[in-house]
Write a protein that binds this DNA or RNA. Structure first.
Lengths: 216, 216
DNA sequence: TACAACATACCAACTGGTCGGTATGTTGTA
DNA sequence: TACAACATACCGACCAGTTGGTATGTTGTA
């Protein structure tokens, strides 16, 4: 996808510095509210460098979505939860991992793809497509484990791995919005708790869930 | 909250026309990408009128969130699903209703509060607070039915009406983002199907869910 | 009930500043 | 010496917000 080959700290540095700056600033301020000058300042480059590497601000926004995809796919691919034998354990481990990394400032754990998709879906086809690809691609990787879990444990009619993978991202994206309202990661933890409970119930693995009886 | 008393079509019209324009344009383009001039053009008023009614663009954004709260709370309060005797049926009827109104252009069924919260949470305290209030307030009304359902049917430990109400909004907000990527309401329908399944499983009302056995 | 004093609701024109983008350098390296 | 990788200087368009004004109420008082 990305054919650029550069030595870190040398030539080509400006491009990746601008992409990093975009991910950081857009997650905090949104795309429109982030100016080209601001991106250049944070990246430590000039406007000339910006328009040397990107034909427009939109083009940077789309490239940053691909950059985000690449960065985060490495993060999740290398995480420990992938080592579990059981596909369901891998999925549950993914949820644990997402909880772990949801700490600190809100802008640091929210999603570039979701943020820019929300804001730019109608103004820039390139950004919308790249951001949506990021989310569906991530869902597809989850779907592999979930399909295996369905084959192994069964599931209600109509439930597919991809559908559950997309729903997982849906809940996480929504949780990021609530987190922005509240100012902390609590909504992410809450959403993951519900997701976990849903999955355990779906696969009849709910023996661990303490039940409360109806009131008399 | 709002002490303005005006006759429709006469004086004071400008204010509500601007609020309507804000809801429409911000849902389509986002807050930053919508200019004051554009809002005035759509509302059919001048910039003077704008700054007569609102101290700043941010102030309009916050007022539009309150306007959104008022508008949508009427919509849901008057809907038929509220007539169900059973609290769980009321909640399930709410989900059906949300599916019904998720049609047409994406910008027409997405949420002003979620959109502006995502974009403005760090740049405007007033917008963030008003938008977050809109979502939590809506959740709180759902929570009433859900608390009654929990009292009636029981639920796993740790599951509260408010937690489920917030989670419902979480899933819907996330679904709106996916819908923006895809260009239609399918992700909303998918998310609601999962929500419905989760609730039926939670309350042991899953007899209607067709089960698929594990592969041999 | 008449009228002065004031408030509200709006308008057209304008301002200083910022925006994305461009035109034209300079410089290091192969 | 040719070209990629930058830097500098600048442009016109657009931005949120201001100004000085008018038209149409509303209200207190004699």
């Amino acid at each position: 996808m990305n054919t650029i080959r550069t030595l870190p700290g040398k030539a080509g540095d400006a491009r990746s510095k601008l992409l990093d700056a975009a991910v950081t600033l857009v997650r905090k301020q949104g795309f429109s509210a982030t100016s080209v000058d601001q991106l250049c300042t944070m990246a430590g480059v000039t406007k000339g460098a910006f328009f040397h590497h990107f034909t427009s601000k939109d083009a940077l926004g789309a490239a940053a979505a691909d950059h985000w995809t690449a960065t985060s796919s490495v993060l999740f691919m290398e995480a420990d939860y992938n080592r579990h034998e059981d596909p369901l354990d891998r999925y549950l481990g993914y949820l644990d991992f997402r909880e772990e990394i949801a700490t600190g400032e809100v802008a640091e754990f929210t999603c570039y793809a979701g943020t820019s998709l929300q804001e730019c879906y109608s103004s820039s086809d390139a950004i919308r497509d790249a951001a949506y690809r990021s989310i569906t691609g991530h869902s597809a990787r989850l779907a592999e484990d979930l399909d295996q879990a369905i084959a192994q444990y069964g599931a209600p009619q109509g439930v597919t791995g991809m559908s559950l993978g997309l729903y997982t991202q849906t809940a996480l994206q929504g949780a990021f919005i609530l987190a922005k309202g509240q100012g902390d990661a609590a909504p992410v933890h809450d959403a993951i708790a519900h997701l976990r409970r849903y999955i355990l119930l779906l696969f009849n693995r709910d023996e661990k869930l303490a039940k409360k009886e109806p009131d008399q």
